[in-house]
Amino acid sequence: MLGFLVRRLALAVLVAFTVSAVSFVLLRASGDVAVAIAGESATEADIAAIRHQYGLDRPLAIQYFDWLGNALSGDLGRSIFFNTPVSDLISERLPVTVAVGALALLFAVTLSVPLGVAAALRPNSPIDHLAMWLAVLGQAMPSFWFALLLVLVLGVWWRLLPISGTGTFAHYIMPAIALGYYATPAIMRLTRAGMIEVLQSDYIRTARAKGLGTGRILFKHALRNAAIPVVALAAVQFGFMLSGSIVIESIFALPGVGHLAWISLQRSDFTVVQGIVLMLAVIYICLAVVADLFNAWLDPRIRVS
């Protein structure tokens, strides 16, 4: 177990380094930040002065190691556009992204797990077919299009929900649905497949033979085992949701890190994008490790090996 953990962590650190180096080079190549800072009416001299002032005239490798050294001590640099530390910008905006992501995941799980279980209990029944169709339809829906349709129908035509911003809980409903539905099919399929497998396994048959009630079998034994891959998938999906919320955050005017990354990319504020890429990578890696550990806790077989 300890060896497993150490290996996972070593890999995680190596991955984080690689991601940071690759994104640093890519982002620096994506535009001249000095021109962006100087603004529309700047002269060539203004731009040269800014380039020097921000140290942008040094070799790329030196700039990277400089950044890395600071990043390791927790300093992600300053946003050129906002003129504030990147870590402050991220910590201001991450809560919104995490809140939307968590609600989206909650939406996806509450919709997909019961459906998956119901489908598994009665394979080839109408409910199974309904679940399958929902999964296929959901997977084919472009999320930006779905979000626009939600705004149009629920927001403007029916006026059921607030359209943008974060004022109340209701503000989070549309973004959570728009972000969460895409994860629903995958989680549902996995729940269904896992349940079918577990229900056919010997020990469930034994439990049945011993005369245990269906509910008890379902929740105490079957679901617990079927949950293992679902939890891993949910964790990974959560990571994807955080990075996939660019469009959703822009459409629903949510001040989260996804939108921050997108506008920062547009204005070549590369320290911000760099910080966000690193943060998302670290979150993703941590989630993967946590999912592994959680699996080990749920499934004694993994713990032993």
């Binding site: 359209i163 943008s164 459409i251 629903f252 005017a253 001040p255």
Partner: peptide, 12 residues
């Protein structure tokens, strides 16, 4: 209010 998307502005 910051509303980046122009048609979200219209909706509001």
């Amino acid at each position: 209010r910051t509303i980046p998307d122009l048609n979200t502005q219209l909706a509001e």
